[in-house]
Write a protein that binds this DNA or RNA. Structure first.
Lengths: 203, 203, 203, 203
DNA sequence: GATGAATGAGAATTCATTCAT
DNA sequence: AATGAATGAATTCTCATTCAT
């Protein structure tokens, strides 16, 4: 299945109904997980009949995919916005710290949802493809924003990708893992420091 | 459920039967995923009856948990072994490169299995706990091995944890993602370089 | 349901719309079978809305019934026409052979449609009734045409009915069954011969 | 699907359970038709759980196929038996008349079942294949029995096949159609006469 | 007359787990 | 300890028909 297969309703009312279904799906997937949520429940939560769901979505996973998109965009938009509003010169360390704070907050808002999406990204091709696409877009955007502020490291794409992975890991660690012996403030400092070094390195 | 709930058979024949079930489960989970494998299939693959499975395991997930453990140990033992055989002084960069090569190979051998486990680690508490425990053990072991070779950075646990995350991300990226615009050799070099810098940094 | 329940539109535009629906239905039933065709598809194929279908037809089966009628008439009209154009004296054997050829061709044109209709004639009373009615009409017409050419066997109705059944079976056999050990040329000859004998027999 | 795919239970209890399911299916298909009978009902009627049905049958159609076989054999065995008990010389006309009587009786016993099967034979490949196979077997058996009594017409297979078709049509006509203007006694006589002529004809 | 979104009952099938043997 | 037949709840998706617009 391709994301573009999902029908795009043209009428305003339909658009809203579709949105309602996605929201209902997101809510339930977040609360109980994908496999423990059935379409009837989603329909009920959305206040529609079970049948109509399949007018808007190819199948249950279609709802999930839309929810993933909506979620990902909701998370990333503020980040982009705040970066694009930066005025040079700025302190990279400080920026990264703010960035991490923002991400942690987002994760905190919908832990289970995020976990479910990651889980699905490991087993479902469509979800994996979307995540892939999302990572690429994000990486590209960040590299461009960096250029605009005069930060042009060698191997920019690779470095940004690595840095994003580190930050994602860190947030994940802080929000979920609770390795008790780990000092999260220290970790954050180390991550920021490593990222700054990597990005600053012109080889 | 707790891992210790799983009954430990004392008889030799029983131990082997249990092992067979775990192996069968691992094979099928790897090939088809957790949700697409049913207990009857596992029993058949293991050459036992469906009923007996529940003498050895509390439920289907119990088999999965044991399979995860077996898998994780199979992956990590060679790594530990090779590190412990190191003779000082050694080249950290080279070591990390070998380490990464070995991990990529392991991932390659059982991609689906690994993916399934990660997926489950996001949704199932028992699996998450095991991963957590595994990470702690690994981190501790590595920190100790490092000390034995005279590498004693500040914030050792945090640094090792971050480094492990970076390496895991890298391997994952290389084995599965195939972001086409990414140069994996460059990425590898950057990761190794960042890790070396981080670990070498005495603050 | 009775065929006469189906509303007869008086307006020209309506008549054409109804015809279009029947044609769309016939096409799809032929291609995919009655049970695998849904009314939405029929409406779409006909270029009308799903709702309007129920202005013209009591239900889905109503469309099927009309399609059956249209089909039956399309098949039988050429046969009647060619018979009525006969000039006495004519060779009965030759006539039957031509007749059979024509029927085989018709069957070939819409195998699935024909099969679907037969299938429905076995389980649906309305369809059965229509087939019954159609058989009676055909029998009557043929008996009359025979009389006009001086062929007046005893038990004419029964004989014609039996002969029609034989010919129908033959065509069916040739078009669908493919019993491999059967020589269809021989079969055709035997059927013609049996029919000729039966009809010629004045008792 | 192939008939041989259906699992053959080895245990006596299993065989009986399978038989029960087939009988329940046959009963319900007969009463309400294939499409109006669901597996839950069949299971209930058979006194088993819905799940177990799928231990014995690949799917719902599997039950139907078994029922068709059981039915066909139940119908044809007495016919074969009575023919094989014949002592030459015998009166062909009389034999055919008895044969027809017997068939009509069989049809009468399970009209709906028979109709359902015919209907399915038109739309389902597996059912069609079974009918095809059944017809071949029957034709072969009859040709052989005829030979044993010294009846060896030219084109025996074709003639027998045609005759069987005529008789089947006749029975069908008598049992279901009720074309009111048709005299069934006359029809029967005509069919018997036509068959006798065809079979007696040595060309 | 016309639209097409909406309904919601319905149905086949699966499968973790149990239990009589 | 071992078997594997049996359970039956649970779930996704379909579709003839209706009805608000």
């Amino acid at each position: 299945m391709n994301i573009s297969d999902i029908r795009e309703p043209k009428q305003q009312r339909s658009i809203e109904k579709k949105k309602k279904i996605v929201e209902a799906g997101f809510k339930l997937f977040s609360e109980k997980g994908y496999h423990n949520t059935n379409t009837a429940e989603i329909a009920k939560e959305a206040g529609v009949s079970t049948g109509i769901v399949y007018n808007y979505f190819k199948d249950k996973k279609g709802i999930f995919l839309m929810a993933v998109q909506a979620y990902a965009e909701r998370i990333i938009q503020p980040v982009f916005k705040s970066i694009s509003e930066l005025r040079s010169p700025f302190d990279l360390t400080e920026l990264l710290e703010k960035f991490i704070e923002a991400l942690i907050e987002s994760h905190d808002l919908s832990r289970t949802a995020h976990e479910e999406m990651l889980a699905m990204s490991h087993t479902d091709e469509d979800v994996r493809n979307y995540f892939c696409y999302f990572e690429e877009t994000t990486t590209n955007t960040i590299v461009k924003l960096m250029e605009q502020h005069g930060i042009k490291p060698a191997n920019a794409y690779e470095k940004v990708h690595i840095a994003m992975g580190m930050i994602e890991n860190l947030c994940h660690e802080i929000v979920y893992h609770k390795h008790e012996y780990m000092n999260y403030e220290v970790m954050k400092k180390e991550v920021v420091s490593a990222v700054v070094k990597m990005v600053s390195d012109q080889h």
